[in-house]
Simulated scan of single mutants.
Amino acid sequence: MTPELFPPPYPRIFPLGESAVLVELGDRIDPDIHHQVLSLAAELEARSFPGLIEVVPAFNTLAVYYDPYTVSCPEQAVQSAGQNVLSPYLAVCEWVREAAARTESHQAEPLVHRRVVTIPVCYGEEYGPDLEYVAILNGLTTEDVIAIHSGRDYRVYMIGFAPGFPYLGGMSERIAAPRLSAPRPVIPAGSVGIAGTQTGIYPLPTPGGWRLIGRSPLALFNPEESPPTRLQAGDTVRFQPITASEYKQWERRRS
């Protein structure tokens, strides 16, 4: 049985500054709710309204950015009490509700291409200085942690924190670990980390407090490419363990 796309009281729409709205579709991290987020995002992109700039999906919300000047043009005005009201916020709320109704009517899969992306990772030693800590914390060997971490698929719920940083869902609680008490000043690009029951990949050298268990030689962010991020919300990620020598081969091919 197909789950109801937008059970009451959703979608709920809130102003996000003067040029965006936040559409809330649920109150938890859940694959079905994320499907709804992606479905609504795809519908808005496929049948955009005048002034739409960008839609940004997250775990259970969708941010809709728009140009208030374009939206408030007289021909885009919202009818209220028989009069034209030049309210960009109300106009966008109406378009979002209409898009949600269209999405719910056909119960469609997201109109975006769903990809499976394999990410090579060299685990441990200089590439994953916290691997042993994660293993000891959970009563496992480092080989166990690698097997568990690379043995399942992960959903990209959202891109955030830094350009191209994927927040991945689906990690086993058997390898959960707390953040560092004090963040490292610089995390090498490509580092794979764990924070609580989440895992992610640092695309750029940035400060960070996640426990580092490995590193990928793949570039996750390149501003010269379109799109600039290797991963997108809705993608499936699979981690492929590689050796240190294979990591260096990947680096040489990239350079």
Results as ranks from 00 to 15, higher is better:
Ala135Lys: 03
Glu225Ala: 15
Val121Thr: 04
Glu225Pro: 00
Gly151Cys: 14
Cys93Ile: 05
Arg152His: 08
His149Lys: 10
Ser150Cys: 06
Arg114Phe: 05
Val121Ile: 15
Tyr127Thr: 02
Arg174Met: 10
Leu111Ala: 13
Pro203Ile: 10
Val134His: 00
Ala101Leu: 15
Ala162Gly: 09
Ser172Trp: 13
Ile146Thr: 13
Leu90Ala: 11
Arg215Val: 10
Cys122Trp: 02
Ala177Tyr: 06
Glu94Gly: 14
Val85Ala: 12
Gly200Arg: 13
Cys122Phe: 08
Leu180Ile: 04
Leu137Asn: 04
Glu94Gln: 13
Ala177Lys: 01
Tyr202His: 10
Ala182Glu: 12
Cys122Val: 03
Leu218Pro: 04
Val121Trp: 00
Ala176Ile: 03
Tyr167Pro: 03
Ala91Met: 03
Ala135Pro: 08
Ala99Phe: 13
Gly190Leu: 07
Gly214Ala: 11
Leu220Tyr: 03
Gly209Val: 07
Val156Met: 03
Pro205Val: 10
Arg155Pro: 00
Asp153Leu: 09
Pro188Phe: 06
Ser226Trp: 13
Tyr157His: 11
Gly170Met: 08
Tyr89Ile: 04
Glu109Ile: 07
Asn222Glu: 15
Arg211Gly: 05
Gly209Ser: 14
Ala219Val: 12
Gly160Phe: 05
Ile159Ala: 10
Arg174Ile: 03
Pro166Lys: 06
Ala162Asp: 08
Ala135His: 00
Arg211Ile: 01
Ser172Glu: 04
Thr229Met: 11
Arg174Glu: 13
Trp210Glu: 05
Val117Asp: 00
Pro88Lys: 05
Asn222Lys: 05
Pro163Leu: 12
Thr229Val: 09
